[in-house]
Structures are given as structure tokens and as C-alpha cells.
């Protein structure tokens, strides 16, 4: 019902994202999706990768502050209004989303949405009940 997201603390300094990408590349880790939350002073890079544990270990070994975060990933139809259906379900139960980002799944005609909510289990159960397929990590 959930997958691991690799969260990395990044100072706003030139070349840091490339440094992270290099660590992952050197360890043969494939990035499936990513998003960056940035502030004036720092950013948080959020990654979905094919091997989160390995990515965590590799980044830690290279002195990055890393944590694995449980997030929900669901499949939505890759059509207009696809995202709206999922959001309306969550809205109806007053579940608020801390952050989210999306990517096109390799499964044809599907998109995937990664989201962080406060009560992960309740949200996952609710989405499941409404027929949204969750992606397992």
C-alpha cells in the first residue's frame, strides 16, 4: 500500500543535484520520479528509485542526510480529470495532502501520483475502496 521515497537534504549550492545523481548512477540506481521542495536556504530532494535501501546507503556513505519516507503511490488514468477523481476521494474524507508529485508510468495509459498525507493508512484504504490501484515498493 505504500512505497519508500528517498528524501535528501540539499544545501542551495551549485552542483549538488549533479553530485547526488552521480552517486545514484555510480551505484546503478535508476530514478523513477523526483521532486524538489526549495526554500531560500535549502532544498529537499524527494526521489522514487528502483532500490530505495541501496540508494539510502549509498547517499549516506557520501555524507548526505537521507531518510526513507513512506509515501502513497497510486495509479490514475492518464486522461483529463484523472487526478481530480483521486483528489475528490481524499477531499471527501478531509484528508489533506502535505505534498505530491506525479509521473507517467511505463504502464500504457496510466500516470502515477506520489503523495504524502498525515494518515497514510486511512488514505490508502480509502483510495483502495474507490478502486485506485496503489503501487507497491
Amino acid at each position: 500500500m505504500s512505497i519508500y521515497q528517498v528524501s535528501v537534504f540539499v544545501e542551495n549550492k551549485k552542483g549538488r543535484l549533479a553530485d547526488i545523481a552521480k552517486v545514484l548512477a555510480d551505484n546503478n540506481i535508476n530514478i523513477r520520479a523526483l521532486s524538489i521542495a526549495d526554500t531560500t536556504n535549502f532544498g529537499i530532494l524527494r526521489l522514487i528509485v528502483d532500490d530505495p535501501q541501496k540508494a539510502e546507503a549509498a547517499l549516506k556513505a557520501n555524507n548526505f542526510t537521507v531518510s526513507l519516507t513512506h509515501v502513497i503511490a497510486i495509479e490514475i488514468p492518464d486522461v483529463a480529470g484523472g487526478l481530480l477523481q483521486a483528489l475528490e476521494v481524499l477531499n471527501s474524507e478531509n484528508i489533506s495532502i502535505e505534498y505530491m508529485y506525479a509521473f507517467i508510468d511505463s504502464t500504457e495509459g496510466k500516470a502515477a501520483v506520489v503523495m504524502r498525507v498525515e494518515d497514510r493508512k486511512a488514505a490508502a484504504d480509502l483510495l483502495d475502496k474507490h478502486g485506485f490501484k496503489t503501487i507497491e515498493g
Binding site: F9, A37, T39, I44, T65, V66, E98, Y99, R116
Partner: peptide, 18 residues
């Protein structure tokens, strides 16, 4: 220097920590 204990995936939490 950010320690693992202080880190969070949420900007809000880190800004509150700061």
C-alpha cells in the same frame, strides 16, 4: 550540520526546526 535526527522530508518541519 543537519543530523539524521533533525532531518525530515517536510519543508515545514525543517523551517520550524530552524
Amino acid at each position: 550540520e543537519m543530523s539524521p535526527e533533525m532531518f525530515s522530508d517536510s519543508v515545514r518541519h525543517i523551517e520550524a526546526l530552524e
